[in-house]
Design a protein around this nucleic acid. Sequence first.
DNA 1: ACAAAAGTGTTAGAGCTACACCCATGC
DNA 2: GCATGGGTGTAGCTCTAACACTTTTGT
Lengths: 231, 231
Amino acid sequence: MLEQYQAQVKCLVALDSIIFGFDGDELKLLLVKRGIEENDVTWSLMGGWLRPDEGLEESAARILFQLTGLTNIYLEQLYSFGAPQRDPVERTVAVAYFALINVNDYQEKISDSYEAQWFSMHELPNLLFDHRQMVDMAIRQLRYKATQHPIGFELLPEKFTIPQLQKLYEAIFATTFDKRNFSRKILSTNLLIKLDEKQKGFSKKGAYLYIVDNTRYQQQFNSFLNFISSN
Amino acid sequence: MLEQYQAQVKCLVALDSIIFGFDGDELKLLLVKRGIEENDVTWSLMGGWLRPDEGLEESAARILFQLTGLTNIYLEQLYSFGAPQRDPVERTVAVAYFALINVNDYQEKISDSYEAQWFSMHELPNLLFDHRQMVDMAIRQLRYKATQHPIGFELLPEKFTIPQLQKLYEAIFATTFDKRNFSRKILSTNLLIKLDEKQKGFSKKGAYLYIVDNTRYQQQFNSFLNFISSN
DNA sequence: ACAAAAGTGTTAGAGCTACACCCATGC
DNA sequence: GCATGGGTGTAGCTCTAACACTTTTGT
């Protein structure tokens, strides 16, 4: 049986992460400039190679850290891509992960010392290989997940307003919602705790700030994870 | 940049397929006997190695054919598994696919000349490596998909009855449904065409046979595929 | 005082759940 | 004629979608 292993061709395994961010207004995508191409400027997802001692998600997290300094990002596996010619240099199977972060929480870390840069989802540059396909798939998955559970909280500051949350969902789905129905639906989840503070400066009236009820949120999130992944 | 490729460690890539079948009564899983272990009898999913010139799904289909003779099975990618020690012999990343077939349509092909065998989902043997985890995840995915679109048609003969379809969904979800609500819901999709024939032999009264309205079904299925995969 | 955004309630329709009886046939 | 599984309708409830006016406050 061991010969069966030795007879096999090995190949490179890459990890590519699609990092979405929200800046309060628009949905953004984090990309790094790619050095390979000379004439055409091409951008790439957060990508790198699997090391012998790493699990897949662990590797994606390490690569993300090396490229951006970001840590403690919840990465979710999206899909694996393995068309024989997808990387013209050498046969590579890519496992794609995606994540959601709040742009403002991480902006300094990223722009300081790294080559990574945020792009509006509406103005994406040319992407390497099949990365565009990965992004399209991730946005679909993001939309699906957003209908299933309130993942949007990850993308906002700790204290946020209902109108901010609505803007986020409108950015994810590229549509608009009725604010009365939206707030009713969100509040009916009982995941939000209303504070006495109001957000000032943006509107004249000011909107009430909310925080996530973390006890309840963790419960829901865990049952969602149990549904999706195994055990 | 090329050195970056050469510096990387390559690893084996395996494809494992979880094949579900329905025999009219129970949900089953297709497994092959695994030669490695001597004392303990261990069974394995339909697994094999990626070849240099193959895409992932293509490879999974080729492996399935070699182990069972099955062709033209719609395989859907499930998840990739890459824990460093998941295969104790050598580091392997496994991409898992799953599929649904009608046991009766394929039974002869399989049992004749191959080592593959159907197991009731309630009586699964010990499985190789992390295959049990893959199966658990696949059943969750199957349930999810079954709520989203009527994937169950794949598992039934061309002509089938509403009670048969109900049994199938009850097997997938390991529960029971109210037959009035079930038939109303299924018929409201307008995907079924009622025939003048009745199924004889099983019940005394006999149940009306239906076929899938393929035009409508393809439409729905395609929009579902577009949602899940890319482009 | 007015402009800009926040906040809030009602109603009609659709879809879901729960539930019970009659029908056709083989034995 | 009776046992077995097949077929159907209704009523209450919940959820959703559509819709407009008042409040607050910075200018």
